[in-house]
Design a protein around this nucleic acid. Structure first.
Ligand SMILES: [Mn+2]
Ligand SMILES: [Mn+2]
Ligand SMILES: [Zn+2]
Ligand SMILES: [Zn+2]
Lengths: 139, 139
DNA sequence: TTTCTTATTGAAAAACGTTTTCAATAATTA
DNA sequence: TAATTATTGAAAACGTTTTTCAATAAGAAA
């Protein structure tokens, strides 16, 4: 999965490849921190000066729609985005520096079955997120 | 835990008991759905007509500060609040009607240990939320 | 390539949710 | 009861997101 592949994906869904979209994609692809629209704007403008903030919003919307990025919910706010994980993955966030990683291998089946029985709910999805200190920030 | 107890809590922390605060507390206490500030405003105004939206924001702020309510994060938005769970609990939400329940008894220790080892993170907290259909909405 | 169609653009304005300001009011204390 | 001061709602300010719109540029067709 490369930034060029994101552009292909956009193209395959009938969207045009533009300098503005390239700048946004290049900025958010491979970022190790979740970025807010303004942060994307500031960073992407270094690659493409004429970029408008509106276009950032519109591009993020499309990338989210294609599941190439996903929103990151945090205590501070829920307006940040990061490259989406592939398959079933969850986020691990550093409370100090904001670094974001994915992990997999959670097994919540026993739990969800037990809760379903107890509550009468049919459970369809789950959100799981871990917070802590990354190796760097622990030191 | 009663609505009157929330008011006591406010009072014990040096806040005054007012008609506006009573209306907000009565509205959000015991609600089965997470409520946004505007929803609280609309509902609470039926009990206290002169209530201002600003006071709703300010009261929610204080109730959250005292851990009497907590923010509910959802795909649709993250501006809603509900009476906080006691102890270590997590949310279970109905995707159809929005009903909110708490559950406990999740055991993520094996998982967090494994992820800590794998990633070098020191894991401090976790967010877990289940989504599904409540008994009513299944039918 | 050149032409044509139309999706995309950025600027400006509008809309939106939230916070700040402020003078009047009302809850608590003395 | 009088004095103090936290709280109030209205209005204004604020930051973010969305809408509007005419100009532009990407991609298709020739
Ligand atoms: Mn999972
Ligand atoms: Mn837990
Ligand atoms: Zn870190
Ligand atoms: Zn339901």
């Amino acid at each position: 999965m490369t930034a060029e592949h994101w552009l292909e994906q956009l193209h395959d869904h009938g969207y045009r490849i533009t300098a503005a979209r390239r700048a946004v994609v290049d900025t958010i692809f491979g970022a190790t921190h979740a970025l807010t629209p303004i942060q994307v704007y500031d960073a992407a403008r270094k690659k493409y000066r004429a970029l408008g903030l509106v276009t950032v919003y519109r591009t993020l919307e499309k990338l989210e729609e294609l599941h190439l990025i996903q929103r990151v919910h945090q205590p501070m706010g829920c307006q940040a985005f990061i490259a989406a994980g592939v398959g079933h993955q969850h986020l691990l966030l550093c409370q100090q520096c904001g670094q974001v990683e994915f992990f997999e291998g959670d097994d919540l089946e026993a739990l969800t079955k037990s809760i379903a029985k107890k509550t009468g709910y049919q459970i369809k999805e789950h959100w799981l997120q871990l917070f802590g200190l990354c190796a760097n920030c622990r030191a």
